[in-house]
């Protein structure tokens, strides 16, 4: 593979001190993610997938091992430099959306750019509008976050994650709070973004959702136990159409 490597981790360890006990959340993980990949990180709770996501998302530093993000060794960076990396190179989508309450979709999407002094006011507005158009919320820009459905809120969150044109998006159980149909809609959106070249790292424990990605990495007890490419990934739009059909026949 001569594609550009976005994420490269070598022999990554992460230990936590809980009381007298040392919890080994990650015990030597090697992983490489290239540009344009759509990776599902799977595993039961306690398998270490959340810990990995925190480290990959530059929210936490590894105890041992190296992490190169877009060619930069993250381990050597301080708190402020990590914040800058998150601001310029990463996008986050959370299970519970984490939108600012009583704030318009547009303002929510603008938020990451507010923390970047290089982006002018007009540029910020323009980028936020484009991001909202990309997630299909062209007509909902002025809507307040608390006036939207869960699916719409998650779309705003996705728009927020892509507004800074990141090298990779991290999604943490991004469909966890949504019903099946809305989940499929969100996955279709992620597939669409991925088709346009966006690298996505998607943490989930649902195999159904993982089928929509291109590569599944499964964790157990701090190790990767499976890392496989998905040959025929499910097309979320097809799944959605099928779901509608099923509902239709069920209703009749």
């Amino acid at each position: 593979m001569n594609k550009q490597t976005i994420i490269e981790i070598n022999n990554l360890h992460k230990y936590y001190q809980v009381g007298d006990e040392t919890v080994k959340a990650l015990r030597g993980v090697d992983l490489s993610i290239s540009k344009g990949e759509f990776v599902a990180v799977m595993g039961t709770s306690g398998s270490g997938k959340s810990t990995l996501l925190n480290i990959l998302g530059c929210l936490d530093l590894p105890t041992k091992g190296d992490y190169f993000l877009d060619g930069e060794n993250v381990k050597t960076l301080n708190r402020n430099q990590l914040a800058e990396i998150r601001n310029k190179k990463l996008g986050f989508v959370f299970q519970s959306y984490n939108l600012l309450p009583r704030t318009s979709a547009l303002e929510n999407v603008e938020l990451p750019l507010l923390y970047n002094p290089l982006v002018s006011n007009s540029e910020r507005r323009e980028k936020a509008e484009q991001a909202l158009i990309a997630v299909g919320l062209k007509d909902r820009m002025k809507h307040l976050s608390n006036q939207m459905s869960g699916g719409q809120q998650q779309r705003v969150a996705i728009a927020r994650s892509i507004v800074n044109n990141p090298v990779v998006i991290f999604a943490d159980e991004a469909t966890g709070n949504l019903d099946t149909r809305t989940s499929f809609e969100i996955m279709a959106l992620f597939q669409e973004l991925n088709d346009k070249g966006m690298t996505i790292c998607f943490v989930t424990h649902e195999p159904d959702i993982a089928k929509f990605t291109k590569r599944n990495v499964v964790f157990r007890d701090g190790f990767i136990i499976k890392d496989e490419l998905i040959e025929n990934r499910n097309n979320a739009n097809h799944a959605l159409a099928q779901l509608k059909e099923e509902t239709y026949s069920f209703d009749n």
């Binding site: 929210l59 914040a83 998150r86 984490n98």
Partner: peptide, 11 residues
Amino acid sequence: GLRMSIGGKGR
């Protein structure tokens, strides 16, 4: 937490 995760520094 959100502000920090999208790039807000402590200061």
